[in-house]
Amino acid sequence: MRLIGAGLLLLLPLMAVSLGVGAARIDLGAVLTDPWATLVMTESRLPRTLAVVLTGAALAVAGVVLQALVRNRFVGPETTGTAESAALGLLAITILAPTAPIWIKMGAAAISAMAGTAIFIWIIRRLPPREVMLVPVAGIVLSGVISAVVTFVGWQTDMLQYVGTWLMTGEFSGVIAGRYELLWIAAAAAVLAWFAADRFAILGLGDSVATGLGLSPKAVLRMGLAVVSVVTAMTITTVGMIPFVGLVVPNIVARLMGDDLRASLPVVAIWGAALLMACDLIGRLVIFPYEIPVGTVLGVLGAGIFLWLLYRRPARATA
């Protein structure tokens, strides 16, 4: 509970700052009276702040779920080929059915993300069981291979520009009302994960333990895959690739409060939101009024935290 409180204490002021910062100067006190201020607030500032919070929370939760499925702490949705697979699916549907409605495109991205993650899990189940560190390496290489395919296809079909926005570093500067609502679906998937938290925690202990406790490992695996894929696909298509949130936040929370997922998932969500909010603010303020994409900020900060985690905990620590 204390961690939730601390997280909120961090997150809420950050959100307030986020509402106040932007290229357009508005008087926060006059939001309700000044129509211009109201417009900026409801069309741009609020959607952006909400988008950051939803993305951060959902990605962090997806990271926890993925780590339980893979039984390895050193993976996140962006290091398992999930994000690149989502982009591949999106690219395929855009080529095959350019006029398809948005929900079909999202569905294609999510299904493709699921397939990519399933391939990853298939691969790592064939690795020697004790090679903890090879799992993320395999994931990063798989991401590279899929991303080469996406680039190749994008090139061939003159769609490299779209591909660029999905695979390059994510940013929230384009978020306005009407262009971020898909993220609510990601948040819903994260809530679903909380309801199934015990199942993921048990699966994290191993297939035989899960079976022994009367759970079907395959069913839990499928549900977990669905959560991770939906979150990743929605994030990728709305704001692009956001690295390290799903990787470092679950690690830090697990270090502080262990792996009781039902208790820790809300904490993970809040801290994920706070981390992303903080990074987004850094990106917005460093070269104000220009912006550094949040993905870039996280790439630097997240990699630093990750290296610290890598050398702090004993090398063999698995999920």
Partner: peptide, 28 residues
Amino acid sequence: PRTILTGVILGILFRSLNSFLGRVIDPI
């Protein structure tokens, strides 16, 4: 394996720092 992972992460760190600096130098 940990050395490999460290290297991979260092690679990401260098690339991110690179684009970070790039933006700071000249966003346009």
